[in-house]
Design a protein around this nucleic acid. Structure first.
Lengths: 114, 114
DNA sequence: CTAACCTGCAACCAAATGGTTGTACAAACT
DNA sequence: AGTTTGTACAACCATTTGGTTGCAGGTTAG
C-alpha cells in the first residue's frame, strides 16, 4: 500500500487555495459530517449548479474531498487525511517559531546580564 | 486589551489565500525564524523587489506577518498567533469528522448486528 | 548637500478565478 | 419509449492575481 508521505509545493498551493473560499470550506464542513451528492450540495447555496460543481472539482483536485459514483449521482465526502496533512504543515511553522524562542532562551541562559 | 477571538469569513479567506503560494509560505517560514527587512527578503527570490513587496503586503493583510519600521527599512516577522488561528480552524474540521465517527460508533453500539 | 538605499504605490499586462448559460449524455422514473 | 434527474464540460465574461516597470518620498551614508 502506497502511502503518500510528502506534498509538493503545487499540492500545498492547491490545498490552501481550495480552503480560501467560504463556500468551499462549507462544502468540506458539510461533507465531513454527511456524505452528499453534488446536486444536494448545490441546493444549499445561492449559485448555479455548475458553480457548485466547479467548487467541488477544486476541492477534489486538492484531495480535500472524494467523489464516489452511486447510480447517476456522485457522492461527495470530506477527506480527513488531507485536513490532517494541512494541520501538520501549519504545525511545522509553529515549530519553527518555538525553535527560535528556544534559541533565544538558551542564548539568554548562556549570557545572563546580571 | 482587546483580544480578537473570532475571524470573519473574509479574514479566513485571506489567511488561506495568503498561504496558497510557495513564495509567501517561504517568507512566513523565514520570518518566523529571523526578522528580515523587505529588501533582504527580496534578495532571496528570483523576482522583482515590487513583487516580493506585494507578497509581504498580502501576508500582512492576512495578519500572518507584522511589519515594524526601523529607520528606512521595515522589519518583517512572522506572527505565530495567526498560524495558530489557522491551526484551530483546521482542528474544528477534524473534530467534525471525529464527531461523525463517534455518532456512527454509538449507532453501531445501540444496534449490534450479531 | 548629494548620492545611494529602502519602501510604497500606480499603471499596465497576461493568466487564473468565479461566476454564468448552454449542450450532451447516462441513469432512473412513469 | 419518453421524460426527468444528475453530472460533466465548453464557451463566455468580469474581476482578481501575480508579475512587470517607473516614479516619488523618507532615511542613511559620503
Amino acid at each position: 500500500m502506497v502511502v503518500q508521505t510528502d506534498l509538493s509545493d503545487a499540492e500545498v498551493d492547491r490545498i490552501f487555495h481550495a480552503l480560501a473560499d467560504a463556500t468551499r470550506r462549507d462544502i468540506v464542513r458539510r461533507t465531513l459530517t454527511v456524505e452528499s451528492s453534488v446536486s444536494e450540495l448545490a441546493q444549499a447555496y445561492d449559485m448555479s449548479f455548475a458553480a457548485v460543481q466547479k467548487h467541488v472539482a477544486v476541492l477534489e483536485g486538492a484531495g480535500l474531498v472524494v467523489k464516489t459514483p452511486r447510480g447517476r449521482e456522485r457522492l461527495v465526502r470530506g477527506n480527513p487525511d488531507r485536513i490532517r496533512k494541512a494541520q501538520r504543515l501549519l504545525d511545522a511553522y509553529e515549530q519553527l517559531w518555538r525553535d527560535r524562542v528556544d534559541r533565544l532562551d538558551s542564548l539568554f541562559a548562556e549570557r545572563p546580564d546580571r
